[in-house]
């Protein structure tokens, strides 16, 4: 199983929205490499014909009726907002695609 490079860690950090500092990149690259080396043990079973288990419960079809339940008030909804304006969550500029 391949190890993990500093560049890969930088890519992961970008995907995960973590603005890592340079020294963190080095630090994490080493640690993640160790961890990945250890957890790679699972790949022994990659080719085995074993069904995957994504969940420990055998439940299916848990659904609720289409009935309205009380929502939060806008004040409650916005109570934790770092910034707000016009009863909306105010966020920094979103880099667009246009």
């Amino acid at each position: 199983m391949p190890g993990i490079s500093r560049e890969e860690v930088a890519h992961l950090a970008k995907l995960a929205r973590l603005e890592l500092k340079d020294e963190e990149l080095d630090h994490f690259a080493g640690q993640l490499d160790d961890i990945i080396g250890a957890v790679a043990a699972v790949s022994d079973v990659a080719d085995e014909d074993v069904p995957p288990t994504s969940h420990p419960l055998p439940l299916t079809n848990v659904m609720r009726p289409d009935e309205v339940r009380p929502s939060l008030t806008p004040e409650q909804a916005l109570s934790g907002a770092p910034a707000q304006e016009q009863q909306r969550f105010k966020v920094p500029q979103i880099l667009g695609e246009e």
Binding site: M1, V39, V42, S43, V45, A46, V50, P51, P52
Partner: peptide, 16 residues
């Protein structure tokens, strides 16, 4: 995904 998450799920089955 297959090598890591997927395999881990298989191990989960084996442990169960």
């Amino acid at each position: 995904y297959d090598a890591y998450y997927g395999s881990a799920q298989k191990v989960r089955t084996l442990i169960t």
